[in-house]
């Protein structure tokens, strides 16, 4: 304590946050009991920690952040797809091919979660377990990302326009037909997702459609 009748700033602060040595703090307790001014000031400093510990008001926007977070998580699972070659390419090595499919399969296996209830064949009845919720599976397709495929599809569509004149008419007709089928499915799925944004099955179906769209567009390079 200073020569004045009151605690120093350092003493008040360290008393308030509990960082003062126990023996020293015990020695100052008597002053706090005798000095309302110092006691009130230390209590004000302690109040900050108490206020800080109170639950913070919930931000209503937080729930709306999840779709973007999920999208970023999915994008990080994308396995880089080699660019499509304009000319016939050599068959991939066995090891690379097997590793790719094995990696995809391992991702499928690692991500697979099935909520199952036993329904055994044989003696006794088999019971169906029917869920009321739309989404029951939690299998996430590794290497899929809606946004990533959407962006890639747009790049490939731009390239298609540049290559259009060089593509055989019958091939172009086939591409446009296939893209029409896929785009209709994408449109239906995106509308459904707007109505039910938390449905993982819808997202997985949309990813599948986008992946097929990208693959059709990549085949353009071979159709010239």
């Amino acid at each position: 304590m200073s020569d004045s009748a009151h605690l120093t700033e350092a003493e008040r602060q360290t008393l308030a946050d509990g960082s003062m040595a126990t023996r020293q703090a015990r020695g100052l307790q008597a002053h706090l009991r005798a000095c309302p001014s110092c006691a009130a000031d230390v209590d004000r400093l302690r109040m900050i920690a108490r206020r800080y510990g109170e639950p913070a008001p919930r931000d209503p926007v937080l729930a709306g952040l999840w779709p973007e977070i999920r999208s970023r998580i999915e994008r990080r699972k994308v396995v880089p797809i080699p660019p499509a070659a304009a000319s016939p390419r050599p068959a991939p090595s066995l090891r690379r091919s097997v590793l790719l499919i094995a990696g995809t399969a391992a991702g499928l296996a690692a991500a697979a979660v099935l909520w199952l209830r036993p329904a055994r064949l044989g003696p006794g009845p088999v019971s169906d377990q029917v869920r009321a919720r739309d989404s029951i599976q939690a299998l996430v397709l590794v290497a899929d990302s809606i946004r990533s495929y959407r962006d890639e599809a747009q790049v490939l569509l731009d390239r298609l326009e540049l290559q259009r004149a060089m593509i055989r008419p019958e091939a172009m007709a086939s591409i446009e037909r296939d893209l029409g089928v896929i785009d209709r499915s994408i449109e239906e799925l995106e509308l459904a997702i707007q109505r039910d944004p938390r449905n993982p099955t819808l997202r997985q179906l949309l990813v599948s459609s986008y992946r097929q769209k990208v693959e059709v567009l990549k085949r353009v390079g071979n159709a010239g």
Binding site: A112, L116, R120, D128, Q129, Q137, E188, Q204
Partner: peptide, 18 residues
Amino acid sequence: SLNLRLGRGESRFIVRTF
């Protein structure tokens, strides 16, 4: 939605349609 287990449930099938 339908979940089933056949036998020991060793293989896994996930089927989804719109």
